[in-house]
Amino acid sequence: MTRLPPQPQQPTRLTHNRFVHPRPGLPGRWLARLVSSPRLLAARRAVLSRLPFMVLQSEVEQVVYLNWLVDATAAARYAPPGVRLWQRDGKTLFTVLTYAHRHFGPAAAGPLRRLYPSPLQSNWRFYVDQLPGGARAGRVVLFVKNTLDSAIYALGSRFFSDALPSHLAARFVHRREDRAIRTEIVPGAGSAPALRSTVRPAATRTLPASFAGCFDSWESAVAFLCLQDSAISHVEDAGRIAHAGIDLPIDLAAVQPLEAVIGECNLPMLRELGVPPGECAQPFCFLVPAVPFRVLWERLL
């Protein structure tokens, strides 16, 4: 297909990753200041940049992908300077994937990793076509919102990682109910995004008509949406981009088609991205039952 011209330059200051604790009050404000302190973060980078990266590992389960085609111009405001999002005919892909970890912790812990908690997580992302300097991106996603149900993991990701600045939900549900999977993220007074969805198994692997102009088949769309080997995120205090390598060996043959339950998909951010109301509740969705997951490396560009 014909490549579209470069997206317009975005503002250099992006604030969608700024952390606000979901519960108002002095402790929440103090924690938010602590994990956002430029001096502390600079000191952490100076120390950890001289040490080998600690590979993180988990076995994730019940990975639900919700995918929409959204307005590329509206989405460009989430991209750091120099980053160009994948797009076709003025549209770009936006994905929310939500899953349950199983003992997320350092790979070096070996069998002791089973002692680590198993938080719920939701990643909100776009797909990258070009990195700063004009480099082709390959299989790279741009994280714009990451949410956890665990204060330890959310605050820890803020302090120890630049590539996965996470938000903390006031309430987070992601579970099976009969044959359906219900997901609910309630931000409270915090910076986590809001989401409510219910999905259930679909009878066929059918590619929505809106996606047919971008992909040849259901299988090719799933492959594009699933198979990535790195992720980037804007680092607000440093004015730079963090880049992390990930290993997510998804077996495409195991991916299962889903359909959204009518009236049970609500995501306010879609309105900002120009999605018509009738399409908000009809994402292209599917399930990855289980997959091993590792974070391999991280660096600032």
Rank of each mutant, 00 (worst) to 15 (best):
194 A>P: 07
156 G>R: 12
166 S>E: 02
142 L>W: 10
150 S>M: 01
120 L>T: 04
188 G>K: 09
187 P>Q: 07
130 Q>G: 00
131 L>F: 04
191 S>R: 07
158 R>T: 06
211 F>E: 00
115 L>E: 10
194 A>N: 03
160 F>E: 01
127 Y>F: 12
186 V>S: 04
197 S>G: 09
130 Q>V: 15
202 A>W: 13
145 K>Q: 15
172 F>K: 09
141 V>G: 03
214 C>N: 03
145 K>W: 11
217 S>H: 03
223 A>F: 13
225 L>S: 07
122 S>N: 06
216 D>N: 12
127 Y>P: 08
194 A>E: 08
184 E>M: 08
184 E>Y: 11
150 S>V: 02
149 D>I: 08
187 P>A: 03
205 R>H: 10
200 R>S: 10
197 S>T: 15
135 A>V: 07
191 S>N: 03
224 F>V: 11
122 S>R: 07
132 P>E: 09
149 D>H: 06
116 Y>T: 05
167 H>I: 07
117 P>Y: 07
157 S>A: 15
163 A>G: 15
165 P>Q: 08
128 V>C: 13
198 T>N: 01
147 T>Q: 01
123 N>L: 05
218 W>T: 06
213 G>K: 11
180 A>S: 15
194 A>K: 14
215 F>Q: 04
215 F>P: 02
135 A>K: 12
189 A>T: 02
199 V>M: 05
187 P>W: 08
137 A>S: 10
205 R>G: 03
179 R>L: 02
